[in-house]
Design a protein around this nucleic acid. Structure first.
Lengths: 347, 347
DNA sequence: TTGATCTATTGGAACGTTCCATTTATAGCG
DNA sequence: CGCTATAAATGGAACGTTCCAATAGATCAA
């Protein structure tokens, strides 16, 4: 069975007794076709088991209907949530997003981008891998294919970015911890080659400055942005002479790691050590204790990125405004007051 | 800037002073070309910022180099792990996998499949959405495009399946619980319209049968295959007259939900109630308490699926053997002995 | 009737590749 | 030198679509 030579528009034309042009018009839903003819053609399409060849079509058409989503870590549920938001918007616009994973590997990223370009994507939404070389997106830009960065950005680039207000998020989180009486604070996870890291750490430091936490009472531990990284950070932090009593984590994955490490030591997040995450993934709410985290409206960011992309495609431009999404602190159980402090500030 | 008309193979030919055929040969790495010529051509390619048009090429070539991965729930980290295994294999074969999410929605799935087919994929690896209609893959099969199911299968279909030995996994897990002294067992999560569910539940029931757990001491609670679903299952289970003391969960997500619900009630998984998961996602090991789970060698299954797909493409067939992967029980902390039982069986 | 206008349909030339059949250049041999 | 064998490069047709300009058939106004 199977494998009779693929049916084309010409086979349909023959079957339906019309010309290939007519079939093409029907396929595009043109109003120029007499309804009865359209019906006849559509029946023929069914009968021969035709599948549209978009590659051939794109040879003549200006733009394709696929956009590429290039993600640095698909195993982080955050990106899955982001993708869901995008898909909602794209689906409504008749655009199909293809997702490709770079696994935080710049070489793989180059391959994936090349492949997507060859496929003739109409646009690219990218969360660039760590260590992306500045030139990576040059040629894509000059090819006139619109790019939008989400979450992450490149230091020098003029490519539009859709990201949360990282600085403000950290300020909110740090202020919260300080108001709860904590005086020795840590910032856990991430590494300084990420612009996002600098923003999040920057907000943390600013809040410390403003509210009078001296430099000597701040501890900064870089680490992998994963559970494992978070566990390592806590271990590191607890061996210093005057350990912190609270930590703002680079993201929720790190925060979960910190909470696990606490549990392993018989300590409880919230009661013995305050933990605040960043991103507010779905899991944060259901964790135990529930994680206080900076909510970034993940799906909303995804939708926004998709909208910006659609607008860029439509207006044939490769430029667009950045968009910094509002953030808010969701206080849950993991960020209790300092045990030795008098300051109440109950939830 | 940008947007000078896209360079084609002809532009390169002119630039390098050769014919388009020569350029094409170079592009394909043919050995028929004099090395110096190849160098000259490659330089021209760089100079004009050429991007290969795979759509045009596929018009002539038999097969494309993209395969589609259609996943029912991208937010489940299990599938991300599966994808990672596949990507390893495909990358080595010069094949690019595009991932598309169906979010467990059959309609969306149809759209996604259509799009992938139009794009001219060489093959499809699918974890079908719940409620997939039997006819969905008929036309794809008759179009001669190879399909491999992973994890899930359709009741009647002859499409090859790569999946773990669900039955055996459940037997192992249930036997473990019974040997730890548990006598009232539950099976949590999933629903009977999934073939996987029947397999996993079947193994559970068989072990109960074999080891003398009477029907009246088994509790089966269907539910969503998510954390939330797991929480609901536990609530349901604890209100029956003689509640179970242990549960095998449909997957790890459900198990995590059960553990959270236990914690909310002041109970501890492992000590007060035994929990076993299925899939052994990375998180299981790092959870607290660490989750006992049936390991299915996720990445290995992904690799296997990719290999089978490559072989099918190569041999131009739409048929292949099923592959049932070995499973093993990873005993951790969440499955402690029944408190009222004398049976020791320490870890 | 003729010509203009409109509607529905059509043929043919692109689009950017690959691949086959040729052509041209180079070398090898008696 | 002429011949064949080999290596390197080439032109043209084909792939399945879109789009433009053209056509055929109605309808309408004068």
């Amino acid at each position: 069975m199977a494998s009779r030579a693929k049916a084309t528009i010409l086979d349909i034309a023959r079957e339906a007794g019309v010309s290939k042009s007519t079939v093409s018009l029907v396929l595009q839903g043109s109003g120029l076709i007499r309804p009865e003819t359209a019906v006849k053609v559509r029946k023929a399409i069914e009968d021969v088991g035709y599948v549209y060849n978009r590659g051939a079509a794109n040879l003549r058409k200006a733009h394709s209907n696929v956009i590429g989503m290039v993600i640095n870590d698909l195993t982080n549920p955050f990106f899955a949530e982001l993708a869901v938001g995008m898909e909602r918007v794209f689906q409504a616009a008749g655009v199909v997003p293809f997702i490709a994973n770079t696994a935080e590997n710049p070489v793989r990223q180059e391959e994936v981008l090349k492949s997507l370009m060859e496929q003739g994507v109409a646009g690219l939404i990218v969360s660039p891998a760590r260590g992306t070389t500045p030139g990576t997106f040059r040629r894509i830009e000059t090819a006139g294919v619109p790019i939008v960065f989400t979450m992450r950005r490149l230091p020098d680039s003029r490519i539009p970015v859709i990201a949360p207000d990282n600085h403000r998020g950290s300020v909110l989180a740090a202020e919260h911890l300080i108001r709860r009486g904590h005086r020795r604070l840590a910032f856990f996870g991430g590494s300084s080659d990420l612009v996002v890291y600098q923003e999040r750490l920057g907000g943390f430091l600013e809040a410390c400055e403003t509210l009078g936490i001296p430099n000597s009472d701040r501890l900064i531990v870089e680490g992998e942005t994963s559970r494992k990284g978070g566990m390592a950070c806590l271990e590191t932090a607890l061996v210093v002479p005057q350990p912190p009593t609270a930590a703002l984590c680079f993201n929720d994955a790190v925060a979960f790691g910190v909470m696990l490490a606490l549990r392993k030591r018989g300590l409880e997040a919230g009661a013995d050590f305050a933990v605040v995450g960043f991103d507010d993934v779905a899991e944060a709410e259901h964790y135990s204790p529930a994680l206080t985290s900076v909510a970034v409206d993940t799906a909303g960011l995804g939708e926004r990125a998709a909208h910006v992309m659609l607008k860029m495609i439509q207006s044939r431009t490769t430029r667009a405004e950045n968009h910094i999404g509002a953030v808010s602190l969701v206080v849950r159980e993991s960020s209790g007051p300092d045990r030795n402090s008098q300051v109440g500030d109950a939830a």
